[in-house]
Design a protein around this nucleic acid. Structure first.
Length: 529
DNA sequence: TCGGGAGAGTGCATCGCCTT
DNA sequence: AAGGCGATGCACTCTCCCGA
């Protein structure tokens, strides 16, 4: 058995029991039995293909070789391997002959039933399959299993030189005809964990590729934008035409010309939102704007100390001073944990959202969150006072919040490896462990902003632990005991608020103030039982 | 061999008691 | 009175047994 290369990936590691490909030094599949479709004289003989044979991918390996050394397959001559399932059943019968079936059998056992290699002689398809474990207890898998084929880790050898059997890797339904399984191997829990890890690694790699592709696509759209900038009081604006590489996430500090002329990377400025007829104050740290949503309008900017000028829109408005924001609206530093889009947790159909007495705030204009110059709203209307990372992020990475994302879509960019649960606990930022607790218990926390922090930590944790549930991520991230009913009450309220764009951010913006207490949030958003 | 029935596991929602 | 939390019920899925 060839040993994997020193730099072998986990995928190669798990394939290390296979023979090396003489052509590309990767691995060849387990011997497949020819049904003699292309040449009847080959029926019963075995052949092998390189696992990198993924035609029509250009760099795939075309290695194909007959395994004459294995001789012709006389059906009864091939070792009839005991399948893992059968072996498990036999072991159970031996261990507990009085029990019938799997009455008290744990699901962990069924997880260990991993079909390593299957040759399907009853259908037209031969398949070499490394079937990852399917945790049938997980609802996501349950729902998925009937709608789409189970995702497989490996390897669909297709050979264009022989035109032998086509290959499929789809999972057979439970009641499909029994397959004769050969080359099968009883698998250990360590093997199962390895296959799980490979599956996760594969999925994350695919997601990274997709993310890079989306980013490259977004960056490839260079747009020409006209900007009017009032740099001196009472004068005409400078009119500039600049090239914007990523119109989905435009910020003046990204333009060298604007930086040179107006120092917008260091100094505050203001920009005009034509829809709201409001001048927003911006800086290098404020959010980008999606020029696509602005419909190609001429952008109006002004230096921070300029309040009027020729042709300036909304010139009758007076800017609000920072002092007017007051202590109730702290500009606290932005926590880094909410970089990823929020997960949407749909409620059950009969769940009725108890709406707030006041209307929910509209999302900040064009992805901005700078301070308002003048809201023009009544006193009951909350004011968006600080930027959230959700709005800071490049818009090409934003996701429609109504669309339920896949659990692993928001994994960190390049996780070095799958961290163990204990290791994850050590990753918990200490600040979440030291937040003000609620008046009656450790969780929920006292303030909405801390609760939001916790929810996002859990989401991050679940992203790198696919298939995990709140009962797993809750103690892992918050280091608190998970109480299902408490979690249910509070999380439902939080996610119900998430259905209203900007509502969560509005509560978070209250910070550690009286208005930002979770108790008050729950009074508004507690879901009816 | 196939399909229905039943047991078991899991998650979610709700009720109601207990604590603060 | 408000809120936390245990107990319970329900829905769903999977697996196995057993009879046709």
């Amino acid at each position: 058995m060839p040993k994997p290369a020193p730099d072998a990936s986990p995928t190669e590691d798990v394939l290390s029991h296979l023979k090396r490909c003489p052509k590309c030094k990767y691995y060849v599949c387990a011997p497949l039995r020819s049904k003699g479709k292309a040449n009847e004289t080959n029926e019963g003989f075995h052949y092998e293909k390189c696992l990198k044979n993924r035609q029509p991918v250009p760099d795939s390996c075309t290695h194909f070789a007959w395994r004459r050394d294995l001789g012709k397959d006389h059906r009864n001559g091939v070792q009839q391997a005991v399948t893992p399932k059968k072996a498990t059943a036999q072991a159970e019968k031996q261990a507990a002959p009085s029990t019938r079936g799997r009455r008290n059998k744990s699901k962990t056992e069924s997880k260990q039933r991993v079909l390593v290699s299957t040759i399907d002689e009853d259908s037209d398809n031969d398949a070499v399959v490394l079937e990852g474990t399917a945790d049938r207890s997980a609802p996501a898998h349950r729902r998925q299993s009937k709608k789409q084929p189970q995702k497989h880790v490996a390897v669909s050898p297709v050979d264009d030189t022989s035109n032998e059997e086509p290959v499929v890797t789809g999972r057979k339904p439970d009641h499909a005809p029994r397959k004769r399984q050969t080359y099968s191997t009883l698998t250990s829990p360590a093997y199962v964990r390895r296959v799980d890890a490979i599956d996760t690694e594969h999925r994350m790699r695919e997601e990274q590729i997709a993310t890079r592709a989306r980013q490259a696509l977004a960056k490839s759209h260079v747009a020409s934008v006209i900007i009017r900038w009032w740099s001196k009081e009472g004068t005409e604006p400078d009119v500039l035409e600049i090239e914007v590489e990523n119109p989905s996430a435009f910020h003046p500090k990204d333009s060298p010309l604007l930086v040179q002329e107006y120092r917008c990377d260091k100094e505050k400025f203001q920009y005009y939102d034509s829809k709201k007829d409001i001048w927003f104050t911006g800086s290098a740290g404020t959010a980008t704007r999606d020029l696509k949503k602005l419909g190609g309008e001429i952008l109006c900017y002004r230096s921070y100390d300029v309040k009027s000028g020729e042709g300036m829109p909304g010139a009758n408005k007076r800017p609000a001073s920072d002092a007017s924001l007051g202590p109730e609206m702290p500009r606290r530093p932005l926590p880094p944990f909410r970089d990823s889009p929020s997960r949407h947790y749909p409620l059950t159909p009969d769940s009725q959202i108890r709406r707030a007495a006041f209307p929910a705030t509209s999302p900040p204009g064009s992805g901005t969150s700078a301070s308002l110059e003048e809201s023009g709203l009544d006193d009951n209307t909350p004011v968006q006072t600080h930027a959230t990372p959700r709005h800071h992020q490049d818009t090409f990475t934003a996701v429609n919040r109504i669309e339920p994302p896949l659990p692993a879509l928001f994994a960190p960019p390049a996780p070095p490896a799958l961290p163990a649960a204990s290791a994850s606990a050590s990753r918990v930022p200490p600040d979440i462990l030291n937040v003000r607790r609620g008046p009656r218990s450790a969780w929920p926390f006292r303030y909405v902003c801390d609760m939001a922090h916790g929810f996002d930590l859990m989401r991050e944790w679940e992203a790198i632990h696919p298939g995990s549930k709140p009962k797993d991520s809750f103690p892992a991230t918050l280091q608190l005991e998970f109480k299902s009913s408490t979690w249910n009450d509070n999380s439902r309220a939080w996610f119900a608020a998430g259905d209203i764009e900007g509502e969560q951010e509005r509560w978070i913006a209250h910070g550690h103030t009286h208005d930002g207490e979770w108790r008050k949030f729950m009074q508004v958003w507690r879901q009816t039982k």
